[in-house]
Amino acid sequence: MLPKITAICLAIIVSVSLAIYIELRFAHAPLMLGNTEHTLSIKRGMSVKGVAALLKEQNILSEIQSKQFLLWVKINKADKKLKAGTYLLSGKLTPDQLMNKLVIGDVAQYAITIIEGQTFADFLEKLKQHPAIFQTLEKLSEKEILTLLDAPYPYLEGIFFPDTYYFPDQTQDITLLKLAYQTMQRHLTMAWEKRAEILAIHTPYEALILASIIEKEGQLSVERPLISGVFHRRLAKNMRLQADPTVLYGLGNKTKNITKADLKMDNPFNTYVYPNLPPSPIALPGLDAIEAALHPDNGEALYFVAKGDGSHYFSANLNEHNKAVQKYQLQQPAQGVLSE
């Protein structure tokens, strides 16, 4: 009797050991997904059986492998720990690594980039067009969005920091707006605290407005403090800024050569007509432009004109400026601050 029981026990031990061995081999053997990147989207509430079935359906696992995966997840007591989201599967991923990826929620990361000098409208259009972003802002007014952001500003223009932001699939557009807004607030606050002692602007929001104009005027980083100096001196002398980008913004940022009629247009963004700063930023300024707005050059220039190569010629008086316009603009309207 004893030998028979011993034989049965041995058979069971061998069977269990073989099953464990097979399962371990499966769990740690590469799935051989090749060079093709697979996307796996797990919905909220999906069971581990549903995940295994989805892996089979998408040909990531065979039918036998999907059953083995289900068993491996249960052996590791991870069946209630798998997280919803979109996952990118590539390379020689093993079933054990796949399970861990789903447990820790290592979801696919998408990106959206805001470029310095773009407008809020440009940013909003990028948000609308991105397939991984969940849309919530479509029917909201500017005032309603500002309320959601808890932003103490009258306009959305200029208050979002240009950068690349990473996010998981189906992130809400308002979440990304909040992130870009909070990032701008942090940079602006730090820059304002370290501002130069004597400035012609009085609030961080005015700094943001001026920075947006500098962002559009100056292509070269080295020139931005010089451009800032011109604007600060003009503000201090109650001279109109006469900045072409503000005129273009008032025209809806149309790509065109500015005409004399445009310069006389009755629009609060027309700094050839209205004194002081425009009512809001005209673009999304980067940190370099913000720093320039708060640390202007201490020179004497009151004018500048584009030389056609991305740089500018700076003048301290109107006579010198008019000669520079003749030389560099060849009878064409000057780009930048014109004569008053």
Rank of each mutant, 00 (worst) to 15 (best):
Gly218Asp: 08
Leu226Met: 14
Gly252Gln: 12
Ala180Ile: 11
Asp173Cys: 12
Phe304Asn: 09
Pro225Gln: 06
Lys83Asn: 10
Tyr181Leu: 05
Asp266Ser: 11
Ile20Lys: 10
Ile60Thr: 00
Asp163Met: 06
Asp288Ala: 15
Asp106Thr: 05
Lys67Gln: 15
Ser212Gln: 00
Gln170His: 15
Thr259Gly: 13
Ile145Trp: 05
Phe160Cys: 01
Leu10Tyr: 08
Asn238Asp: 14
Gln335Ile: 11
Asp173Arg: 06
Ile64Asn: 09
Lys77Glu: 13
His187Leu: 04
Ala196Gly: 12
Ser280Leu: 05
Ala29Lys: 15
Gly286Lys: 04
Asp79Thr: 09
Met46Val: 14
Phe160Met: 03
Leu55Gly: 02
Lys323Ser: 07
Tyr165Gln: 06
Lys49Ile: 07
Leu31Met: 04
Arg195Glu: 07
Pro285Cys: 11
Ala207Ile: 01
Leu24Pro: 05
Phe69Gln: 03
Gln219Leu: 09
Ile20Arg: 13
Asp266Glu: 12
Ala200Cys: 04
Gly252Met: 06
Asp244Ala: 06
Gln129Arg: 07
Thr271Arg: 00
His130Ile: 03
Leu199Glu: 00
Pro30Cys: 13
Lys74Trp: 14
Ser228Lys: 02
Pro281Trp: 04
His295Phe: 11
Gln118Tyr: 13
Asp262Glu: 11
Tyr328Ser: 13
Gln331Trp: 12
Thr189Ile: 10
Tyr274His: 14
Tyr303Asn: 06
Asp163Trp: 06
Tyr110Arg: 06
Ser315Asp: 02
Gln331Arg: 15
Gly218Ser: 13
Phe269Tyr: 15
Thr119Gln: 13
Leu98Ile: 03
Thr171Asp: 09
Pro30Val: 12
Arg234Asp: 12
Leu127Lys: 05
Pro30Glu: 13
Tyr272Ser: 02
Gln219Val: 06
Lys327Glu: 14
Glu23Pro: 02
Leu127Pro: 05
Leu18His: 13
Val103Gln: 01
Leu251His: 03
Leu88His: 10
Leu188Gly: 01
Asn100Phe: 02
Tyr274Ala: 07
Ala243Tyr: 00
Val107Arg: 00
Asn35Leu: 10
